[in-house]
Simulated scan of single mutants.
Amino acid sequence: MHQPIEFDPADGARGVSPSWTAGIPALWIVDAARHGDPAEQLAPGILDAGEQRRAGGFVAAADRRCYVTAHVALRMLLGAQLGLEPREVRLVREPCPSCGGPHGRPATDGGLHFSLSHSGDLSLLAFAAAPVGVDVEAVPNDRTAADVGAMLHPAEVRELAELRAEERPVAFARAWARKEAYLKGEGIGLARELSLDHLGTGPVPQPGPPGWTVADVLAPAGYAAAVAVRTAGQQQVHLGRQGH
């Protein structure tokens, strides 16, 4: 299980990680409840015009604070690694593997791969030398775990059914975080059926899909998190079925 570093705007410019070996992600957790005030103070000098418009469009103050804090952290950490001022980092979208549209995996012009996820007050950032995806999820209620859990891989559905009722929400959250981290890494997202890939609901993930390493990330109580990194030299999958 990976241990993320807690991001603090006061020292975020120190850099991302000393290790950029393919397959070894650098992970940062961002708590908007703790660091939202300083991040919002820094935001006008860091976020670009599009990010500031999006931040201003949130109705709920908590959602706006989470977005601003996460994107301030993202730009500070990317800038530190790329040798740029945070506002100078150019964020782009790769082509979507499904339709070719400009809404695939987020990227930079500097060849650094990253991924961002948020849930509640928490955001999780991943950086790697290869395509990477990350996800953090609040553990859902029993009803959501049951309804959405039925959409998972048949083996995962069986695993959930064998658990006690009180254990299922946490197990479901583990499986969902692993699956979404992988799909975000591919740039596919939920366009790919949840039933295609078996990543498991237990305390240890199943081996990742071919060409990917999937691992859990240590998260606060009430959350589950995971990261997926593409193995060097492997090609991304598309929407066809895999033999899982």
Rank of each mutant, 00 (worst) to 15 (best):
W176K: 05
E193M: 13
F127N: 09
A126M: 04
K179R: 15
S123I: 06
R174I: 00
R192N: 14
L163Q: 08
M151V: 11
P131K: 04
G187P: 03
D147F: 03
E193G: 15
N141E: 07
V148P: 01
L194Y: 09
G133C: 08
A173W: 00
K179T: 14
R192D: 15
V134P: 03
V170T: 10
E162T: 14
V139T: 07
A171Y: 01
D121E: 10
A171I: 03
T144A: 05
H118D: 09
A171M: 01
G104D: 12
E167V: 00
E180P: 05
R164F: 09
G104K: 02
S117M: 06
G189E: 13
N141I: 07
V134M: 00
A145T: 04
F172L: 03
E167Q: 11
S119H: 07
L190C: 13
A126I: 10
A191Q: 15
A130N: 11
V170Q: 07
H113M: 08
G111P: 02
A146N: 06
P169C: 04
E166T: 10
H113D: 12
E162A: 13
L112I: 15
E162L: 06
L196I: 14
R174K: 01
R174S: 00
R174C: 01
A128I: 13
A181L: 08
L122Q: 10
V134Y: 00
G187D: 11
G110Y: 04
E137R: 00
S195I: 14
K179P: 07
E156M: 01
F127D: 06
A175F: 08
L124E: 06
S117T: 14
A177I: 07
F127C: 06
R168Q: 13
P131R: 02
H113W: 05
A175E: 12
A161I: 10
D142T: 15
E193V: 14
P154H: 11
P140M: 03
G133A: 10
T108E: 03
V148W: 00
R143V: 11
P131D: 13
R174E: 01
L125M: 09
F127R: 08
A128M: 06
A155N: 05
E180M: 07
T108L: 02
L112V: 15
L163H: 06
V132A: 04
S115D: 12
F172S: 04
D197F: 11
E167M: 00
V132T: 13
R105W: 06
E193A: 14
L183D: 14
A181Q: 11
H153Q: 13
P131A: 08
D109Q: 12
R164D: 15
A146G: 05
G111I: 10
I188H: 05
R168L: 01
V132E: 01
V157K: 01
D109N: 10
G120Y: 01
S195A: 15
T108P: 00
E166K: 07
L190K: 03
A128G: 12
A155K: 09
R192C: 14
A165S: 13
P140H: 04
V139I: 14
E180R: 03
K184I: 14
P140R: 00
G185S: 10
G185I: 14
L160D: 05
A138R: 13
H153P: 03
V170G: 04
E167C: 00
M151L: 11
M151N: 10
G187S: 09
K179F: 09
A145W: 00
